[in-house]
Amino acid sequence: MGKAAREASRERLRQEREQAKKRAARNRVLGVVGAALAVVLVVVGGGYLFFAQQSAQEQAFADRYEQLPAQTLQEDGSVVLAKEGVKAPVVEVYADFQCPACKQFETASGPTLQQLASEGKAIVHYRPVSIFAQAQEPLSANSLRAAAAARAAADHGKFVQYNDLLFENQPPEGTQGFATGDLKEWGGEVGIDDPAFAQRVEAESKVVDTFTGEYLPRLTSAAQQELSGAEIKEMGLSGLMEWGDDNGVDSSFLQDTYVQEVIDATGAVKDRYSSGANAFNGTPSVYVNGGKMGDAAFSGDGVRDAVERAEPGKVSTEPLAAGAGATADASPEPDVSP
């Protein structure tokens, strides 16, 4: 090989090395840019799918109530869901928002009840109670806070939606839940934009704090000094509170609150269904025209069957006079007698 040839081959080698280096650098850049694009794709694509699914769910939640008939607030704070002027069996639902069996009932049969009401086949009478009002914290406060907030939602004609949302978000027994902030936020979720709702929820939650934190312990210890355990049990919460008013434990802070209303409603159902096969002894209790349903209540089909077999019935409460915020005069003929 001549000198010139050696030179040329060396030059060629040098060029090849140079090119290989450039290629390697380009590949590194391509690799890194590719990795970055993959990150963008995963974040944007994955996030988009997540958002889209979330919004589809929200839409489905909003649509679910499109067919819902009028919700009529009653004098005792309960709510009647029925088509205007319809003649159909009355299904009373007594539930405590903190009771796990009530959540099961709502999940299994709640949608069917709403459907029956929208088809005009049933008059659904929601009657929230608080069987946990005297239970240990945080059970009692959870139960009362939720019931009072649901009553506030009824003022804005959104009880049914709010009821469903409460059960959906029921805290496990024994843990803090139904926080005031959440209760207010859920109002917005069901379409209540009146600030009066949030104010009411806030005020009622403070009443609940006083009730469970100060009033009830004082009432209980005063009663235990003068009465036997059996007597206290016999009186029920409403009776005990009356006794307290006569014996120096003042309950006037509860006046005109929704907390008082749900306590009254709970006392009233025990009087209404006091004995026999129809006796109220816990939640959920479901009555078709005053007859208590058994385990069949825990399935949509069971409820539908019971309603289809029953005769038209009468609602036992009067609608609250107009001006209270609820959808007015959509309820069927009221009947005063229980």
Partner: peptide, 23 residues
């Protein structure tokens, strides 16, 4: 839907320093 996600993805890449010049 995608703009906040794109911003977040760019933020993530800048934070990690991946493909810095292009990001």
């Amino acid at each position: 839907f995608t703009l906040p996600l794109l911003e977040f993805a760019l933020a993530l890449l800048l934070f990690m320093g991946l493909a810095t010049r292009y990001v």
